[in-house]
């Protein structure tokens, strides 16, 4: 039986103001995987994420989720943006922000109920933020802000979670907590697509990777795509860290399985 990909990108070219930032991308993402979108600055990672989320319209090709346009499956996805994308002086408490994840469009009377509050409190507890529920969001640390965003996304109870560099500017404790949550989600059969910066940690935590440098360099299991040729094509060949990464991945395959041995 053929497995339907959860994300299907075909011949995707997109950008801003008629200037493409990504060219002719073709790849698929499998359900239940922890997938990273990797590439240097300006490689089009954010543009790709915006296409997947339906925030910008591609010039050519498509990015489908579950074989459909993203607008038809929005109730099944959630998004953790970069924490710098909002103004944290906004008058809201931690609980207010997490509750924002609970709104669903469609009804005229769209106030939230007891059930929504319970769900929000549950996810605050899961992210270790429940003691801060009534705090104004401006008083949180960087790591706590990221955890609030994660809780807001998870309050939507998504099957597919998108994250934009969730570990950037986050303290070690929060990073560990966030990673723990993400791993739990994968264990529960959810799928994660994450824009990621750090190659070394990418080798340790990801199942699959999409290597991007305005064009697609490679996509597939980390153990396969992390080789010298691909990484230097993505990042440029003068990075001494590249060989360390490849060492790391080949020596510690960890939880990566060879896809050829996988039953499907």
């Amino acid at each position: 039986m053929k497995i339907e990909p959860i994300v299907d990108v075909h011949n995707l070219t997109a950008g801003y103001r008629r200037r493409p930032a990504i060219w002719n991308l073709d790849f698929q993402i499998q359900e239940g995987k922890f997938t990273g979108i990797l590439g240097p600055n300006g490689s089009g990672k954010s543009t790709l994420l915006k296409c997947l989320l339906g925030q910008i319209t591609p010039y050519t090709g498509y990015a489908h989720l579950w074989g459909q346009k993203v607008d038809r499956v929005r109730h099944r996805i959630a998004y953790v943006p970069q924490k710098e994308s909002v103004d944290w002086n906004f008058p809201a408490t931690v609980l207010d922000v997490v509750l924002m994840g609970r709104y669903r469009p469609g009804r005229f009377w769209q106030r939230l109920g007891k059930k929504d509050k319970e769900a929000a409190l549950y996810w605050l507890e899961q992210t270790g933020m429940n003691h801060l529920a009534n705090r104004q969001i401006g008083q949180l640390s960087g790591g706590q802000r990221q955890r609030v965003f994660l809780a807001r996304a998870l309050a939507r109870e998504p099957s597919l979670l998108f994250l934009d560099e969730p570990f950037a500017g986050v303290d070690a404790g929060s990073a560990e907590r966030i990673l723990h949550m993400l791993k739990l989600l994968i264990e529960q059969g959810k799928s994660i697509v994450m824009v990621h910066h750090d190659l070394v940690s990418a080798g340790k935590i990801l199942d699959d990777a999409i290597l991007l440098n305005t064009r697609l360099v490679a996509s597939g299991p980390v153990s396969e795509v992390f080789n010298h040729e691909n990484l230097s094509a993505t990042y440029g060949s003068d990075l001494s860290i590249l060989s360390d990464v490849i060492d790391l991945v080949t020596r510690n395959p960890g939880r990566f399985k060879d896809p050829r041995n996988q039953k499907s």
């Binding site: 109730h75 809201a92 924002m100 709104y103």
Partner: peptide, 23 residues
């Protein structure tokens, strides 16, 4: 009044509100 939470969400983080499918 009928959609107060949506106004909150849009005012705080318009991109997130958009991915939620809010108009």
């Amino acid at each position: 009044l009928p959609s107060w939470p949506i106004w909150k969400s849009i005012s705080f983080d318009i991109d997130f509100a958009r991915t939620q499918g809010l108009n």
